[in-house]
Amino acid sequence: MAEAAAVAHDDHHYTSTGLNSWKLGFWTLIGSECLFFGTLISTYMVYKGQSIVGPFSGEIFDIPLTTVSTFVLLMSSLAMVLALDGVQRGSRKLSMIWLGVVILLGATFLGFQVYEFSHFYHEGLGLDTNLLGSSFYVLTGFHGTHVFFGVVWLTTLWVMSARGKLPPSKALNVEIAGLYWHFVDIVWIVIFVLVYLIQ
């Protein structure tokens, strides 16, 4: 985060485009992440329906459960923009409430995922069972890892906010964390349809 300050510092904030470098760099990184998840999704799609032994996706996927966790993650994105709004207004109360909501919803999503993974495992789907096991766990697992790091990041910001160290002048920190969070959300939007709904 301080990295951006380095740039902002130089020559009274000079950048050739007027854009903040940290934000531009982060958007670039998101572009790169598209390829990361794109490759995982490609692999899942190539191997879809190619498993030789069960359990197969149609037998174990629990659409109502996943719908709830999808909804939870989607609403966390709403809470995220409200949190950013709170920080920009300089309202510590709103910042803490909404950042807290994002963290709780993110953790809830992770809870659903842990439940889902252990449920599937008890249904007989291990990482080494078939192609579904490998491609499903690695794809959704890496997404879950991203959610986990997002929760850690947002918790850091929440603590900063609680200690009064997140004034509007630092809203950019929250905005960048928000970009990350929304990106993780849109990846799930794609996964929800390609992995769960289209079978």
Binding site: Y47, S51, I52, L127, D128, N130, S134, V138
Partner: peptide
């Protein structure tokens, strides 16, 4: 790496991997 360290099947022909 998952194939090698955690017995995943991405490139395991016996499991249908390509």
């Amino acid at each position: 790496a998952f194939d090698r360290f955690f017995s995943a099947n991405f490139f395991n022909v016996a499991a249908g991997g390509d």
